[in-house]
Amino acid sequence: MLPSTHAFRRWPRPWMSLVALTLALCCGWLSSTAQAQVLPSYEGHQPLSQKSPVGLAAKFAGVAGRTGYMQPVRFALDGESQASIYHGPQLRELVLGPSAQVSLMVGHSYRIKVSNIPDMPGVEIFPTIELIDRLHPPAGQKDNFPVVMHITKEDVELAVAGNLVTRVVYLEQPQLAAPYELDRATATQNLLRSENALTEADRRGRPIAIVRIGGRLPATHGEHPSFFGSGGPIMESRPTPKAAAPQAEARTPSARQEGLR
């Protein structure tokens, strides 16, 4: 039997309802469990930027001890575009396969050639790539998680028009990740000309690579070897078929879908 106070509780007056509604709104605002995602302010000094000479950031990475690791890289090109890369002390040109995936050494800068661009016959561009950091995948998963570098048709058009497009690829910090799937368009954020691309990438995650896409072509009478990169090695890299992930040893519950309403 309920106490008498419960049995004869009176309905509150109308003005009390208004007060209760106001309080509920305030409580709802206060009880928000997390703050909206805000990029943290950059603390520190970034000596490098997109205007730094090609190869300087890679040298910084080598000084920091991050060199010597072959990091798989995949070039995401438009259509039937074809990529080739200059490598080794002889700076030989290697035409990449359809997957356009290859392992590059961290701490080196490379020059690639993109040709056979759709709707742009005869156009060739020579972007540069600097690897300044690496991933640490589980054993056997190295080639399945390459660093993806996008070179879009828009980048090529900007480069042909005389612009220098600098892309800084960074590893997203999970807490600051965008809550949607990233594709070629949404994965790229354009910066103001005055902003430091490396600083902005560092705010959002961990910078991995710098891609510079310009309209400079090698001279016909020969180019200085440094134009084709620092002579870093390359290795073949192919994504392996998906290995069966280790299954958790928890028993499969005899789940009753109707158990949850």
Partner: peptide, 15 residues
């Protein structure tokens, strides 16, 4: 769960 994801920032400079 190992699932890295990459983003890019792009800066366009016009000399």
């Amino acid at each position: 769960i190992y699932a890295p994801r990459f983003g890019e920032v792009r800066s366009i400079t016009t000399p």
